[in-house]
Every structure is written in C-alpha cells, then in structure tokens.
Design a binder for these strands. Sequence first.
DNA 1: ATGCCGATGTCCT
DNA 2: GGACATCGGCATC
Length: 207
Amino acid sequence: MRKKLSKDFYQRSDVLGIARELLGKVLVTKPGAVCCAGRIVEVEAYNGTADRASHAWGGRRTARTEVMYAPGGVAYVYLCYGIHHLFNVVTNTADIPHAILIRALEPLEGIEDMLLRTGKKKADVNLTRGPGNASKAMGITTELTGVSLDSNALYIAEDGFRVADSEIMASPRIGVDYAGADVLLPYRFFIQGHPNLSGAKSVNALS
DNA sequence: ATGCCGATGTCCT
DNA sequence: GGACATCGGCATC
C-alpha cells in the first residue's frame, strides 16, 4: 500500500537528507483518466540562496521562482531550454527556497500512457531517464507548479520499498557548469547501478 | 561510442 | 543578445 508523504516530511531543514530519503519513494500523477507511477532513482538537491546552481541563488525572486519560497511540500515546475518541463519538490519552511530536482524514475504504472505522451515506441530505459523525459512521461507540465504534493493529481508516497544506505551514491550535479565552486558539491544522489540513471554511467563518486 | 547541433521560454546583462 | 538544472537526431570515428 502507498502512503502519501506528509507536509512534515518536506518542511524539514536538511535538504540533502530529504533528497536522499526520496530515493525509492513513488511519484504518482493523474494527468488524465489513468494514474501513472514511477519509483524515484535519481535526485539533485538545490540548497537555497547560498547555492550558485540554484534559481534562488543570492535571494533572486521572480514570477517563475516565487513558488520556491513557499512552505515545503509543493511542486516547482519550470521550463528548461524552452522545451523541457523539469519537476522539483520544494522543501523547508516559508522563505527558505530549497528544492529537489527529480532526475530519473523507474516506471511502475501507466506505461502505455507514458509511451503515448512521449511518442516513444518502446518502454526502454530512456522512457523516464533524465528530468525532461521523466516529467514528460508522467504528464507533468508547468501548469502544475505551485500544486500541493498532497493533491490526488500529484504526490509522492512511501510503499515500503527500502533502499540500503550502501546502494545510495552521491556525485556532483549535472549541467551546472556555470555554478563556480559549487559545481563540485556532491548534491546528486542516486541508486547505484540503476538502469534508468541519467548522465555518465561509469564514474560515480561514493557518498 | 562519441560529438555537434537545433529547439526556444525565462531571466540576466 | 546570451545563457540556461535537456534531449534526440544525425554525422563521424
């Protein structure tokens, strides 16, 4: 059985710990008549105003990023490169703009609908590999930004699946070369060896 | 297997 | 005008 994560889960201050705990949890959407579900296997933490890779670096605040300053437990979905809808989870309390990017999923339910939405012919590892692909497969668009994660249309649940600490790896984040020294921060977390992982398969630093 | 390129909304200089 | 939390296709090794 699935149990939705509570607001308390998201509103804690340790964004790195929350990111790690999201591995193995189940993301559920209902973009149409059919529920879709995928297990989270890769995430990246964005550590608020102090993090040069974050949209909220230096306290920046725009119409797009406003939702990052909301209390934790809502979705932050933004358009990347004008094309891809990237799904993030907002964490911490009001005015502390922490967020966690969901980068890859293992498809569990609604795979036929995922294929229709993505236009892919086969459910291979690319279906939900990478943040743009994962969001597209799950039917997540910028229309869902600001939506509470206790909504029936979009939530994250615990289903008893356990990820051992020894399976959890950390590495620098992907695609943030502009972030100065923060490029090197090991804020990407993933389940070791999982087939749906994005980025370089080979060299992945230990956590 | 690796690399370049185009698509293109939002934000920044 | 340029950069960007990306991806797939096509060219080349």
